[in-house]
Amino acid sequence: MVMVIIGGHIDLSVGSVVALSGAVAAVLMKSHGAPFWVGILAAIAVGLVVGAWQGFWVAFVGIPAFITTLAGMLLFRGFTFNVLDNKSLSALPGPYQSIGNGFINGLLGGNGYDVFTLVVFGIAVAGYAYSAFRSRRARIAYKQPVPALWLFITQLVVVAAVVMWFAWQLANWKGLPIVLIILAALVLIYSAVTSNTVFGRHIYAIGGNLTAATLSGVKVKWVNFGIMLNMGFLAGVAGVLFSARMNGAQPGAGNMFELDAIAASFIGGAAVTGGVGRVTGAIVGGLIMATMSNGMSLMGVGQPTQQIVKGLVLLLAVAFDVYNKRRAGTR
């Protein structure tokens, strides 16, 4: 969602697409006996088709994304009801379920804790340290300022310690959740895409100043198409995860998901006018929202109060951002 917002668009259809892709996967597996991987691929394919459809209207016909995806929200919700015949489907095949609920555990054995989890995290930390070191070397080669070596190493050690502590907790519990692996992969890939690829740069350029981007040779239509296509893909992935976690597909699944995603992006620092935002910011925003609702649920706060609190947090977060920008902009 944050990429859509950086590009100056919005996507209101995410919830419906999540429901539709989950529904298609469930129907294929339950009613037609397809294996679990067909279900996954089908869900993602549904996402891509939806993305291409919306991308076509937004990019080539020039209908604002707000309208296109508002229509999509109704359209795909309707399809979901049709596909599911207005009933819930549950009890999906085991492997499919495990995408949402499963853990990788015991691959390397362990004495009350999972060695495999620790190994994966260890490799991740080592990889992070190596890439941090390489980019530091590259910066030195280009004669750019770098933090002092001791500071750099301290930073690495602190990060590694926190991450490994987290890994230890996981290993002592059930092992490595599959969802976490998928999430980590997506965050890594999309952070890199937004900040280091030509496509990512073009998204920022379009969101920042559309005419300037056009006159700088950005193929605006194709970039917009790519943004919407990618959004569909991600909604498809979310559909798989959500239906797997719920162990079933409901016609009403994923309702209001789009609003959570939009809220997370804005709390994470994206600008309403486009051109600003980061993937990691959106993840932090999402975590804040999730932590809040989880925490409040544990405290026994009712749904109505939770909604009120979430609404206020969103408003205040964006207000704080606006205030900060105004202060920085006074000159």
Binding site: T197, R201, N209, A212, S216, V276
Partner: peptide, 29 residues
Amino acid sequence: KKYGLNLIEDIRRNISAASLFKLSSNGWV
């Protein structure tokens, strides 16, 4: 301001905006 620059972006990225094809290989900047 209207057609030439992305005002909310920094100098560096404005300079490279029309030449990313020179600065990138396989789509990576």
